[in-house]
Write a protein that binds this DNA or RNA. Structure first.
Lengths: 136, 136
DNA sequence: CTTGACCTTCCCATGGTGGTAAGCTTGATG
DNA sequence: CATCAAGCTTACCACCATGGGAAGGTCAAG
């Protein structure tokens, strides 16, 4: 039943590039893959599942360090979901901060752009404001 | 009237670290600074202004490449504010995309966390969902 | 003259991903 | 069987912006 495949197939199935699969192995996020006689990496279904897990976590913006923790919890049968939840909520908070930062930039820049005529003359409130150390 | 200072003072006045000032010079964003006989970099008010400009642009999330363009426009007397505005609006759009991405992550993760009891048992919808290749 | 604070250059690290080159393996086709 | 393309291997280099640190020179105050 278990399907064995090489790195290209594992990449296709998990959505993680071969490059990154090797990288994940290099940084210890994945156990070193078994090899064929010709030194080709071999992956089983469980390995592909783990790659899928990592991919999903990346898509939620978790860092590699956090993902290492999540993978550890995932593979621990008697884990506590409280720990997972805490990790997740901490990341939600981080995302909120980043979103606020971006929004602050966005609205400041948009306000500047609205003050600029954009009519081809050299006068430009955007540049003037950037040059003014009082950020005003 | 013009105040000359060394890199530490320029850093203090502009808010850009000495480290980064040297880096900006290295990548060509700043003209190579004049030097004292002892090879210390010397900065004048205009240089500090340019550093302030760069700092402000960084705080709005512009990339170094965009900042190089902005600095170029800033220092061009017969520039067109339309060009500046276009750069700014393009960056607003980039920020909007990043914000949307973050918000998508945020809400997906928050929804997952809400489904998790966090009561100390091993059952965890967060991990289950990450492991499911159907992202559902 | 010593001391401490500053400056100089040079190298390394981060994080996550991509590219590329040189060389080996595999499988299919002529 | 020879060949060729596609895929694998490792080992580098690059991005972007920033920080850290080492080893050594300089300057000003005590």
């Amino acid at each position: 039943m278990t399907q064995f495949c090489n790195i290209g197939e594992a990449a296709k199935r998990s959505g993680v590039s071969s490059k990154m699969i090797r990288h994940y192995e290099g940084i210890g996020l994945l156990a070193p893959a078994r090899r064929t006689a010709a030194n080709y990496r071999v992956y089983c279904d469980a390995d592909v599942n783990q790659l899928t897990f990592i991919k999903s976590a990346r898509e939620l913006g978790f860092s590699m360090k956090q993902i290492a923790l999540l993978v550890g919890l995932w593979q621990t049968p008697d884990r506590s979901n409280a720990e997972v939840r805490e990790l997740a909520m901490a990341h939600v908070q981080t995302l909120d901060e980043r979103i606020r930062d971006m929004q602050r930039m966005r609205s400041a820049l948009h306000a500047l752009a609205m003050r600029c005529q954009g009519d081809g003359r050299p006068e430009c409130p955007i540049l003037d404001t950037l040059a003014d150390q009082d950020h005003s």
